[in-house]
Design a binder for these strands. Structure first.
Ligand SMILES: [Mn+2]
Ligand SMILES: [Mn+2]
Ligand SMILES: [Zn+2]
Ligand SMILES: [Zn+2]
Lengths: 168, 168
DNA sequence: GCCGTTCTTGCGAATAGTCGCAGGAGCGAC
DNA sequence: GTCGCTCCTGCGACTATTCGCAAGAACGGC
């Protein structure tokens, strides 16, 4: 009920079956007691698997399709998607937070000295998630960490510099 | 040399020995090739062990003592202190990032559903730091994590709700 | 289909944080 | 003590993000 109506609306929308991502999202929203709106459907489709996108990137992709949409709506919708577990929201240090579809879980190491970025498999982080669940029953949303620090090279450089008079 | 001069200046400043935090900071700054300024000394002293303070909290504590100080300087100085490993900078979800002196390492779990906050000993997180160092030689600045998710209670609630029609 | 309730959205203003620049201050050299 | 080099700071503008509110849209009921 309601679901049927929505699916028909989706098909009517033009692109026929088209990956069914819209229909999937509609289901998920309804299942979570959320309303299905054009904004939400379009914003979901603006996300690209495997890419980090800022709210503004997403706004830029959405605006042509939905001219009246507002930045606030983009922010609020992304927050909703994050809470539904559809996307991750991460401050990677580039000035704007980045959103990414939650396909395969992974994380990022970022060197504060040289900017190098290293991808990290979730296998290294999973034990922490498990430990938090075991100890506290806490279901941690650790889906896409940005971990800042010093890369191997820069850490050694810093050490060497401290050894000397640290002339910088 | 230079150090001697600075220590004398510190003593002249009035409060005699006064915990020596200023002198300590002066040393650390010099050791890192950074300059010792009044702003930096006062901002350090505005921090309170064990407390989360926002940049604006700190600005409010500093302004009376150093009337011409600017918010930008507070932000820049806190960033410097963070990079020197003196303080942590964490988004705890309250709208403004929080700064805390790095005394004893600990972390926070925050329930996105009910807001409950749970303190976590660093022992649970240390293995991750170690794993990153082992695997990548990466020295992770994981000093004060804010981990968002669902607390035990809320996770069970959510489950129950999904079981039913999810009337929310 | 139409209606009422409740959730969403657009809008504008407010808050948080960043950046470039020009003047001021720290510190080593003399 | 003074000088010069370089870093640091105040300032103002700018970007990123949040918020309150009133109009608009979704959806269950009839
Ligand atoms: Mn990623
Ligand atoms: Mn803390
Ligand atoms: Zn590096
Ligand atoms: Zn909770």
């Amino acid at each position: 009920m309601g679901e049927t109506r929505a699916k028909r609306a989706d098909e009517r929308a033009g692109d026929f079956v088209v990956s069914g991502r819209r229909a999937e999202l509609a289901e998920r929203l309804r299942a979570a007691g959320q309303r299905v709106t054009a904004q939400r459907l379009v914003i979901l489709e603006a996300l690209v698997p495997g890419l980090h996108l800022s709210a503004d990137d997403i706004y830029a992709r959405v605006a042509p399709l939905l001219p009246a949409v507002n930045r606030s709506t983009v922010y609020r919708t992304l927050e909703l998607f994050r809470d539904l577990g559809l996307i991750s929201e991460t401050d990677l240090g580039g000035g704007a937070r980045q959103f990414e579809l939650l396909d395969d879980r992974h994380h990022h190491l970022i060197c504060r000295a040289c900017g190098e970025a290293i991808d990290v498999d979730d296998a290294l982080v999973a034990p922490l998630r498990a430990a938090l669940r075991d100890r506290y029953g806490f279901v941690a949303g650790i889906d896409h960490l940005a971990i800042f620090g010093m890369c191997d090279y820069c850490a050694h450089e810093a050490e060497r510099r401290e050894g000397l008079g640290d002339t910088e």
